[in-house]
Design a protein around this nucleic acid. Structure first.
Length: 480
RNA sequence: GGCGCCGUACCCAAGUGGUAAGGGAGAGGUCUGCAAAACCUUUAUGCGGCGGUUCGAAUCCGCCCGGCGCCUCCA
């Protein structure tokens, strides 16, 4: 089954093929860098990370662009959120932007995300934004008032297609007082006049000012991906107005189609309510990572579909952690068995049909990136292998290798929930050597029934946060 | 008020016409000097409620109840 993706533009799953065969051009709305990332950001970026990984896995080259918004994102009262934060922290806005951008990458790296190929900043692309605004003015899709430029939404008949609303509806339901400067309440700012106290300002044909929020994404996506590209992604809460406005200004500026596929991830909820900064119910990733391993958070996120809401709770996270550990154990068991089989040069043995699971996982991912279903299949495979290994039957080298291959391909490369080396008992360092020494001594003591010594070793290690487990295959240790 | 989404076991969560994936928790078991872990088995005659369409519905249609999102900054 070829890859199908749900396109918000058409409201249905569509066969996805890049415009240029074998080359996917993709843009995802990145963070506004004024405060640390929370679980909601993680859901969005983890989802698109899996998409990028999957595109590459099935043989495409991908150019993945994700912006960093460091100007123009306004609050209700018209204040730039970057400037507000800078005022609160007594720092230059670019200081905030730099610190938060670093924090963002730190968090995303921890979650195992593949970095975007290009991470352009809005402040670095003011010229490109001005060029779009100028083009829109020339073509009379926009108008200037007192040093600000607005997009005239009535000139674009497709306005509202993405979000499924018509101008009449929108204006009827608008709860915001219309800005007197605008010709029409739904018109949106392309360029804003900077008041004297406004620090972030650039010269423009209309005087000193700063770009509107939406236009940066049009400028940066088209600069690096071309006027028409394959995929534009982002959070569902950006569908309107942000993405609607992007489409309007891009299509009108170039006269060409903009993004072909629009993908929207759903939101993280807490007790059924959206996790957001304004509600104050958000959990920053940095806080979360003190309690949960980032890869557990990633696993938790991927256990629900990207287009479903994900309800956040400690109980759910704890459940994910246990499930994650179960999968790691299964992979460890399998690899230990594989190592033994390779050592003995095993010929023959019982069979496990990894191909069926491979197929199942491929089908799940091809169907609008159904990661939870793919994970379900990985667990079923694990259960079958565990049972086979526990029964004591010797599994054929070929089967063991093909199962390991499924873990590597999907668990590791595509989903990123199986580390290169699961668990902590394998790498070669002093810690490992010391632990080997201690566990060997302890097992010798146990053989001699000197349990005073053996328990003293185990209890002592426990106090240091190291747990020993005596398994059939030998003793393994884990750090808390 | 307009547009849209969701309601599946104690918790999280797939499934969108063919007779309920998966994970956690609980229960039972294997292993074991003890402990812990690991592993196995097991757990929804039913998918918010009521009608309808169909040989057949969690899945389609209608109504109702409950919750949420967007319409204003948010991934």
């Amino acid at each position: 089954m070829p890859l199908q993706l749900y396109n918000s533009l058409t409201r249905r799953k569509e066969l996805f093929e890049p415009l240029i065969p074998g080359y996917v051009r993709m843009y995802v709305c990145g963070p506004t860098v004024y405060s640390h990332s929370h679980v909601g950001h993680a859901k969005s970026y983890v989802s698109f990370d899996v998409l990028v990984r999957y595109f590459r896995f099935i043989g495409n080259k991908v150019l993945y662009v994700q912006n960093i918004t460091d100007v123009g994102h306004l609050l209700d009262d018209g204040e730039d959120r970057m400037l507000k934060q800078s005022r609160l922290e007594h720092q230059h806005p670019m200081q905030i932007a730099e610190a938060i951008a670093r924090s963002y990458f730190e968090d995303m790296d921890a979650l195992g995300l593949v970095r975007p190929d290009i991470s352009p900043r809005a402040t670095g692309h003011v010229l490109e934004q001005i060029a779009i605004v100028q083009s829109l003015l020339e073509k009379e899709f926009a108008y200037e008032v007192n040093g600000s430029v607005y997009f005239d939404v009535r000139t674009f008949k497709e306005y509202g297609r993405l979000s499924g609303r018509t101008l009449e509806e929108a204006v009827g339901g608008t709860r915001v007082e219309s800005r007197s400067e605008k010709r029409y309440p739904e018109d949106f700012a392309l360029w804003k006049r900077a008041e004297p106290e406004h620090i972030m300002r650039w010269p423009s044909p209309w005087g000193e000012g700063f770009p509107g929020w939406h236009v940066e994404c049009s400028a940066m996506s088209m600069k690096y991906l071309g006027e028409t590209f394959d995929i534009h992604g982002g959070g569902l809460d950006n569908q309107f107005p942000h993405h609607e406005c992007e489409i309007a200004q891009s299509v009108c500026a170039t006269g060409k189609p903009f993004a072909r596929f629009w993908l929207h991830n759903n939101l993280v909820t807490v007790n059924g309510q959206k996790m957001s900064k304004s509600l104050g119910n958000f959990v920053t990733l940095k806080d979360l990572f003190t309690k949960y391993d980032p890869i557990v958070v990633r696993f938790f996120i991927l256990q629900s579909h990207y287009r479903s809401t994900l309800d956040f709770s400690e109980q759910a996270l704890d459940g994910a952690r246990s499930g994650f550990e179960r999968l790691q154990n299964a992979v460890q068991n399998l690899r230990a068995a594989l190592a033994r089989a390779e050592q003995e040069g095993r010929k023959g043995g019982s069979h496990c049909d990894a191909v069926a699971y491979d197929r199942q996982i491929r089908d799940a991912l091809d169907d609008d990136l159904n990661a939870p279903q793919a994970i379900g299949a990985l667990f079923e495979l694990s259960k079958e292998m565990n049972a086979l290994l526990a029964s004591g039957s010797s599994v054929s080298l070929e089967s063991l290798r093909s199962v390991d291959n499924v873990y590597r391909k999907y668990g590791q490369d595509v989903l990123g929930i199986v580390p290169e080396v699961p668990g902590s008992s394998r790498s070669e360092n002093l810690e490992n050597k010391l632990m080997d020494l201690l566990t060997t001594m302890r097992n010798e003591a146990r053989k001699q029934k000197n349990f005073q010594i053996s328990d003293r070793i185990r209890d002592g290690l426990k106090e240091l946060g190291v747990t020993l487990e005596d398994r059939k295959e030998g003793t393994v240790w884990k750090k808390e």
